[in-house]
Design a protein around this nucleic acid. Structure first.
Length: 241
DNA sequence: AACAACGACAACCGCTCGCTG
DNA sequence: GCAGCGAGCGGTTGTCGTTGT
């Protein structure tokens, strides 16, 4: 017990101090982003490359927006999460000034919780409390809650299985634009008849694919749909889900 | 007032991917 | 083709402030 008291009195080891922030910020401002491995050595920070990168990306970078999410942002997160699942970096890419970590935390604490509460209401409102009491394993309660969160709300399916990012999407779109210039009629097919706008994840009826079609399958990417058809169409499709 | 429980958020960890030699 | 390395991502954990008892 005394041991735990002593531990409580210890200063936090790992939170960034203002001095450290200052060092990192001035280092990045003079040397630029990247080469995080050398940052800790050259700047004198006793931090790992990952830690420095994360701190810069999430808190020190210019244009980082702090404070609570607006209603619009929250709404966007919810819709994007429906489309993308836990692709936090992609979702954050749609929220200027917000980071993936922030979006992720916000989801886990504010938004996911709502669903959990609904679920609890559906069962017995006291059951979870009871459950917590039974799990008097103290520190494990939080873990228990997390497991509940995950089991109540399985991840929506991913429509891509490897790390897609905006750069990828932009690159591909540029390729499509070039293709369009060469063969304009092709693109009409893609947006209007290959895919059912009201149900954008499903190709329209009577559509068959061969290997030549495969690149177009990438347009099942929700981002494409989001941009091509706008929020309202995606909303409509979500309503039908 | 003291303690426990909870909520929010910062930070870390492990894995994957892409680049380079 | 392959190993090594750095960067990035998502999941998880730790810490602290607030609220409830």
């Amino acid at each position: 017990m005394e041991e735990s008291k002593a531990m409580k009195q210890q200063p936090k080891k790992n939170l960034w101090k203002p001095e450290e922030d200052f060092i990192l910020r001035s280092y990045v401002e003079t040397h630029g982003e990247g080469n995080w491995a050398t940052v800790s050595q050259e700047s004198g920070l006793m931090r790992g490359a990952k830690s420095c990168r994360l701190r810069w990306k999430n808190y020190l970078r210019p244009n980082i927006k702090r404070g609570g999410m607006s209603k619009e942002e929250e709404d966007l997160i919810i819709r994007m999460h429906k489309l993308l699942g836990n692709r936090w970096s992609l979702i954050a890419g749609r929220l200027p000034g917000r980071t993936d970590n922030e979006v992720k935390n916000y989801w886990n604490t504010h938004l996911n919780k709502n669903g959990l509460q609904d679920k609890r209401k559906a069962n017995n409102s006291n059951s979870c409390k009871k459950n917590d009491d039974n799990n008097s394993d103290d520190g494990n309660n939080k873990k228990q809650k997390k497991v509940i969160n995950q089991t109540c709300y399985p991840q929506p399916p991913l429509y891509r299985d490897n790390g897609a990012d905006l750069a990828h999407d932009i690159q591909r779109r540029n390729q499509e634009e070039n293709r369009e210039k060469q063969n304009p009629s092709n693109m009409d097919d893609i947006t209007s008849s290959h895919y059912n706008i009201n149900s954008p994840m499903i190709p329209a009826n009577n559509t068959t694919f061969n290997f030549d079609d495969e690149p177009y399958f990438d347009h099942l990417d929700p981002f494409f749909l989001f941009e091509a058809f706008g929020c309202s169409s995606v909303d409509a499709s979500l309503d039908n889900m």
